[in-house]
Design a protein around this nucleic acid. Structure first.
Length: 264
RNA sequence: AAAGCGGC
């Protein structure tokens, strides 16, 4: 069981969801009984349809009340857009964790139900970096950048250490507001806290500087990124386009083609 | 061996 669960988990982790499901089925044909670990691993890899069938299997085994399995079930229903079922599973939980609360908050945040998301967030007695990220990003993605940044400040005051995902959401909020000063502050914060400027953060920085009117800063960030992916190139080309500098944009576009980008 | 957040 350990072996099979590890294989299923590894495939799910790498985004090979069909393979993960296949290994789950293969495990059953080998006559091996799944446990709670197996269910939570395989649920991560499946769609709502498969999730529903796995849910009934979990009930038969009596695993559906397990904290990890229940959280994974909430996540499956949430991903499939069945908010009602997700909430029902959440409300009937024997016990909750930061992760299960965050799964429910993510569900609301994704569909723009930020009031409901925030209500659950406020009820939490412990808040880790992920649940802060979900709320901050939720506001940023639904046209509430001011709320997003205000929550980011609260996170700093709560002394929870932001990570790459946090600054990504905050940079997106700055870009929407055209808040160059906040954006610059975030950039130096990222450098001071040694947060890795990966392609995600890099393109968010380029996007922020370009939308805040500083093409020069955008280009400087671009130059410093060594492993550029397609989105980084695109952000820089868009920056030139926004600033009406199509010659530079086109030049960059040609340069990109010359190098031959690798899609991710 | 297991569950939650990512660049428009």
């Amino acid at each position: 069981v350990f072996f099979w669960t590890a294989i299923i988990h590894a495939h799910a982790q790498c985004g090979l969801f069909d393979q993960a499901l296949l290994y789950y089925l293969r495990m059953l044909t080998h006559g091996i009984e799944p446990n709670c670990y197996t269910f939570s691993a395989v649920l991560k890899a499946c769609s709502l349809l498969h999730g529903i069938s796995l849910h009934s299997q979990a009930i038969k085994y009596g695993f559906d009340s397990d904290l990890f399995v229940r959280t994974a079930l909430i996540d499956v229903y949430a991903r499939g857009g069945d908010v009602i079922s997700a909430r029902q599973l959440f409300d009937n939980m024997p016990d909750r964790s930061v992760v299960s609360l965050t799964a429910m908050i993510t569900c609301y945040a994704k569909i723009g139900e930020l009031k409901k998301a925030r209500a659950l967030f406020e009820e939490m007695e412990e808040r880790d970096v992920v649940c802060w990220n979900v709320m901050i990003d939720g506001y940023a993605q639904h046209g509430l950048p001011t709320e997003s940044l205000s929550l980011f400040r609260k996170m700093l005051m709560a002394e929870v250490k932001p990570n790459e995902v946090t600054v990504l959401a905050a940079l997106s909020a700055c870009a929407q507001l055209g808040a160059l000063e906040s954006g610059r502050w975030l950039h130096s914060y990222i450098q001071n806290k040694k947060i890795k400027i990966n392609v995600h953060v890099g393109s968010a920085l380029i996007d922020m500087y370009s939308k805040c009117g500083s093409l020069e800063d955008a280009r400087q960030v671009f130059n410093k990124i060594t492993e550029r992916d397609i989105v980084v190139w695109n952000a820089m080309i868009m920056a030139y386009a926004i600033h009406g500098q199509s010659p530079e944009g086109l030049q960059l576009f040609r340069e990109m083609g010359r190098i031959g980008y690798r899609p991710t």
